[in-house]
Design a protein around this nucleic acid. Structure first.
Lengths: 171, 171
DNA sequence: ACACCTTCGTTCGAATTTGAACAATAGGAG
DNA sequence: CTCCTATTGTTCAAATTCGAACGAAGGTGT
């Protein structure tokens, strides 16, 4: 019964390409709680955003990233990178947000192929309206559950993990 | 430009229901790296599992949970809980796995409504085949990137977070 | 036995996501 | 300038996801 867990029947022989180093109890606990927390958290945030603002978490994040960007606008590809989604997925969502009037498309002056997604006035308003509830929930479910020390470690550790993943992806 | 981040124009007034406590730089970093790491990680694992075993991450997790369960079988609802998915989502995936011959359905003796999903011999084999590569990647991308201390804190912290989320959900 | 409320798993339609294929361009080497 | 390759954003079909609605049982209190 292999899983991501420790070896239930790990042979005493040395590590081979076929028999990797399994996860010990603590490593397993870390991985499991990471996956679980992530899923549960997403579920909750999704529900709340949909209820209170009619936005999906993905859509909310698009608004956030645009809002944080220089002219409230970003190239599609760049935005897709920040969101960690597929380009096609972003195309779809930006179209949705465009229909809602929260985001607009503008062509790039220096590159005919390029497209800027930009936050509209309405989009900015929507974000301001949705943010308080969202932040409060993130705080309640994650931030405030942890001590400052745990938070620091988490930020550092997962920061490294993200950085590493970004690098690999760049290949 | 509110996001999940610190208040860009937070009024000096005391906290009001309309103006929540925004996230300070570190809290924001923690939250962002959590989301990013989660997305990137999922993406990677998804790709690898699909390539090496033809399984989605969800399907793999189903096999894992079944394998870890007492008779290699679990009630649908219980399994859905562990996976943190919707019941309908699970129904769909179990059907897929059934078509692949990796999982079977068995009705529950003590409850006519109940359905057990159980790992088949083939499913067990598939899991044994897929696990090494999966574990190796989880190790490479997450576990081995962190120090033992970071891992401990992460396991503890996210464990608490998960527990809290489980409780709320139970309401 | 009877109503009443909960739980179980599935079905349904709608929304979303993804990768591959594409057309149009950019950018660099020669 | 001219090939050649990489990039950009979109389109497409297929797969997956979810919530709501269901039919069918369980369980409880009276």
């Amino acid at each position: 019964m292999p899983s991501t867990s420790s070896a239930p029947s790990a042979p005493p022989s040395a590590a081979s390409p076929r028999e990797p180093r399994w996860l010990d109890e603590e490593e397993m606990a870390a991985w499991r709680s990471f996956v679980t927390a992530s899923n549960l958290l997403n579920r909750r945030l999704e529900r709340q955003l949909k209820e209170e603002s009619g936005l999906s978490h993905t859509q909310y994040e698009i608004l956030v990233h645009l809002s944080a960007a220089p002219a409230g606008s970003l190239r599609m590809t760049e935005l897709a990178d920040k969101l960690v989604t597929s380009k096609s997925g972003l195309t779809y969502q930006v179209t949705q947000l465009e229909k809602m009037g929260l985001v607009g498309r503008r062509s790039c002056p220096s590159d005919v192929r390029g497209v800027f997604a930009e936050l509209t006035e309405q989009g900015d308003e929507m974000l301001r309206e949705a943010a308080p509830g969202h932040v409060a929930l993130v705080r309640e479910l994650l931030i405030d559950v942890l001590t400052r020390e745990q938070l620091t470690v988490l930020a550092d550790g997962l920061g490294q993990v993200s950085a590493r993943l970004r690098l690999d992806d760049a290949l």
